[in-house]
């Protein structure tokens, strides 16, 4: 049975049919990529998984539970973590604190009034956060302010923050958008490494074909709000419908 199940999702913005009867199923433990040209509805689709948008019709279930109509923080508590197109981190805080916060959220839930207990005494949280930084090779930057990190490191930190919560499902929204080729390759390596160590189910939204073909086990191609092809990477590359979607009508 598939882990993330999207059935008949529709979303209209005024006159624009952003998502048109989208069906998608993501198998547990795999990397599933969603690709498509600009404006295909990739981000809209992602936003329906995380509580930001409610589709006009259709269902989104994760591990048997509906994700519709609940708030972003509740979705995270279910085990869905999200990496943003531009890294969303706590830029004024230290790198270590950035990882401590998701560890706290994982342990204490969405709210806990523990204003008088000292953070420095909570060895479990600190150890977990430090270990996470070692895992992503950032332990030497632990005391730096997050805003002073390079773009690649910010992305790395954001992934570390998501991974520190041991999510069941990781959503990545264009993880290499706007990156130089070297940074892109680093990110691919990081993702491959994570996949090897922790078999977390991932949904990657991408633009960059290069990233997708080296990572994903399955690819869905989205065009004009509709899934036109869903197949293994090797079958996607030469697919005429994909060529048409990306390059315009074939002559």
């Amino acid at each position: 049975m598939s882990y993330l199940e999207i059935r008949g999702v529709n979303k209209r913005f005024g006159g624009l049919q952003a998502l048109d009867d989208v069906n998608l199923s993501v198998e547990a433990g795999t990397i599933h990529a969603i690709i498509g040209p600009n404006g295909a509805g990739k981000s809209t689709l992602l936003n329906t998984f995380v509580g930001k948008l409610t589709p006009d019709s259709g269902t989104v279930t994760f591990d048997g539970q509906s994700l519709l109509g609940i708030k972003p923080h509740e979705i995270n508590q279910v085990g869905v973590a999200r990496v943003f197109q531009t890294p969303e981190i706590f830029s004024e805080l230290s790198v270590l604190d950035n990882v401590i916060i998701p560890c706290l959220a994982k342990r204490d839930g969405s709210f806990k009034l523990n204003g008088l207990s000292l953070l420095s005494r909570q060895a479990d949280i600190r150890e977990k956060a430090e270990q996470m930084l070692i895992d992503v090779n950032m332990q030497d930057k632990r005391n730096m302010t997050a805003s002073s990190l390079s773009r690649g490191d910010k992305r790395r930190l954001e992934m570390a923050m998501c991974l520190s919560q041991d999510p069941k499902l990781l959503l990545l929204d264009e993880p290499t958008a706007g990156m130089a080729r070297a940074d892109t390759n680093n990110t691919i390596d990081l993702l491959a490494e994570i996949q090897e160590k922790r078999k977390i189910t991932k949904v990657v939204i991408e633009h960059d074909m290069h990233v997708v073909f080296s990572l994903a086990q399955k690819i869905s191609v989205l065009a004009q709000g509709h899934v036109i092809v869903e197949d293994k990477p090797e079958n996607i590359k030469g697919h005429p419908k994909v060529k048409e979607a990306y390059l315009g009508g074939t002559s």
């Binding site: 923080h73 805080l93 709210f111």
Partner: peptide, 26 residues
């Protein structure tokens, strides 16, 4: 308070509420 987990959450609210929401914090 400033040195507690609660205090760190407050600082996180000041820095980036979006991230905090997607980190599972209300």
């Amino acid at each position: 308070i400033a040195r507690s987990p609660f205090g760190l959450m407050l600082l996180a609210i000041k820095t980036n509420q979006t991230r905090l929401n997607y980190t599972g914090v209300n």
